[in-house]
Design a binder for these strands. Structure first.
Lengths: 352, 352
DNA sequence: ATCGTTACCGGGAACGATTGCGTAAAAAAA
DNA sequence: TTTTTTTACGCAATCGTTCCCGGTAACGAT
């Protein structure tokens, strides 16, 4: 089954002109008489002519499409980012091809090869938790493929990057927990190789130290798949509670980890914040409806997508190789709700 | 800035062969000697040759890409569906271009034109709530563009469709409310033009009638934008509560409406299910963590995406025009949780 | 009458890959 | 040895579009 489109040849034949003339008439060239132009334009309109973008891509050696690789789209943060990416891309005549790594380095590489073989003009990437070898990224980048990293960036590759101040986000969240009166604050974070995991962990540690609380390694748990696998989070929580230092609060450093922790804590029959406080990074718009309403650190996801895309288009459309790269750092938002309200505090409130 | 890829010409020149020979060698043609093949294959591997898909698309008049139009991707149901679509598409060498209508008929048309001008080989569509004129769909379909509708389908266009038994889903949900002891059951649904809205409303009505409960029109509220605009849901709820027949339960017939209702009810200080019961269609994986845990009707979203894609690929790859279309109807899943537990019932449970 | 200019338009190569057809050389059959 | 067949490869067209060259009128100036 074929969908046959109208070509410039059809117009040329019908009007007794050459394809060159038709092409020029359509592009409003000065070498074509007004009458011919009118003729061509009207006929093109009539038969609903649209230039074949594939032929154009071949000719101009660009596809006007950009590739996006994220771990998964069924994730509030990423779907919001993609919204931002799309809005800018579409306004500039680019289309967006989305691929998911599902936190697998293999799938990520496959997607990468697939997208480049599809000749995308550029890439917007948030790397998977599993990725250790950035050789292919580097090779691509060295060969001139425009790449913008966001969220989970690759430090050793020099290109545009868009992130939030993860250190500050984590610092603020942890400080908030301290101020609420929590003492044994644990953290559940992403694979340690991830830039965001490192930064958020650093923020967590700094906040504890600055508040005179000792950092205990046994209160720091890593989830290699960023919470995509429930068992992983379950294991982390179990370990936390079987340690000598039982935590009285948890700072979760990623979307899936935050809701994952809540799920496991409830499954274990623990009350939040009664038995344990919880705060985490999240971009879900359902967090305030949860039981309990979750205190979260929220990222400006849509804006991040917009900025990343603008930077990428800048790279793509630049005449000469860009060497001056920038890293845009946005700020997170701390939303305080029930899940970090310590019991004593609650009691006090009721009394007053 | 350009990303220069290796072409068949580069290989030909380097090896002193013609492009035809190289092409045939790469495709393992019988007319090429084993030695030449080996030579070409090894060199191609060495310089990391990948055929240019754009050139192939031009030659074969197919792009090996499919377009998907949904109202928004930051929606559990649709992002899960897209996961299903992608998994099948990628396995078959197709890529997926996603576009969002954001419930606007204009944007939908724009996306449609954009995708077809991008020469996608086929389309998978869930129409927007606003769409009234299906002329463009029809035209495209008549001109041979393979289209598969899912979820929100277009009855008057004969092609493959993938839906759930919306009538039964709504019937089951409403029946469940009746069995819980609710008497004045309201429904908040999508724009009445949508296939799913009609079917779910019919299921709701039938369940009431079959249980000897009268259907009151003032207990039926429509949201033109399917809950994307909060004010819309707020207005619906306000109207319900200002009517003579104050509802004691609500059946929400779409993802955003379900969580939207919960949000508004809580904002109004109403307790669920204490003051009012709530059940609705939803595919969010957070519903059981909500306050209260939400009773929902869940659709097999991933599977729907898979089936839709398989059907589309079937259409695309069919040699002759397909005239025998099918509508796949899957079944929904009813998950009963706290939000539909009527107070009396609760009391009884505690007593026993 | 000849030249220069302007205005319009067509031929054909190119983008990268595939493929039908033609053909030289080598191998097999006569 | 001659003829036939097979093997192995190149030429050129094709997909839809753009664009570099040309080319040809018409017209005014010389």
């Amino acid at each position: 089954m074929k969908f046959e489109a109208v070509t410039i040849k059809d117009i040329a034949k019908a009007l007794g002109l050459s394809t060159s003339t038709v092409s020029r008439a359509l592009r409003d060239s000065y070498e074509i008489s007004p009458e011919t132009k009118k003729l061509v334009l009207e006929y093109a309109e009539k038969i609903n002519y649209h230039p074949n973008p594939i032929a154009l891509s071949l000719k101009e050696r660009r596809s006007r499409s950009i590739g996006v690789i994220v771990c998964e789209i069924a994730n509030s943060f990423f779907s919001q980012t993609i919204n931002g990416i799309e809005s800018i891309a579409y306004n500039n005549g680019y289309n967006v091809i989305i691929a998911q790594s599902r936190e697998s380095a293999d799938r990520e590489l496959l997607n990468l090869q697939y997208l480049t073989s599809r000749s995308v003009d550029g890439l917007i990437i948030s790397v998977s938790t599993e990725t250790k070898d950035f050789g292919y990224f580097r090779e691509l980048h060295d060969r001139g493929m425009p790449i913008v990293f966001f969220d989970r960036i690759v430090d050793e590759i020099e290109t545009h990057k868009v992130i939030v101040d993860n250190f500050k986000g984590a610092y603020d969240a942890t400080t908030h927990l301290v101020r609420c009166g929590y003492k044994r604050i644990a953290t559940v974070c992403n694979a340690a190789v991830l830039s965001i995991a490192k930064e958020r962990l650093a923020g967590y540690k700094a906040a504890l130290t600055d508040n005179g609380i000792e950092v205990h390694d046994e209160l720091i748990k890593y989830c290699q798949h960023g919470g995509m696998i429930t068992a992983e989070v379950e294991e982390a929580i179990k370990e936390l509670f079987s340690s000598r230092q039982k935590p009285d609060a948890i700072f979760a450093s990623a979307d899936k980890l935050t809701t994952g922790c809540l799920r496991i804590l409830k499954a274990k029959g623990l009350s939040v914040p009664g038995d344990i406080g919880l705060i985490g990074f999240s971009n879900s718009d359902l967090t305030e409806l949860l039981d309990p309403p979750l205190s979260i650190i929220k990222q400006p996801a849509f804006e991040m997508g917009e900025i990343a895309t603008n930077l990428l288009l800048q790279l793509i459309e630049s005449k000469r190789p860009v060497t001056d790269f920038e890293t845009r750092v946005l700020t997170t938002e701390l939303l305080i709700r029930e899940s970090t309200k310590k019991q004593k505090q609650k009691a006090k409130e009721i009394a007053s």
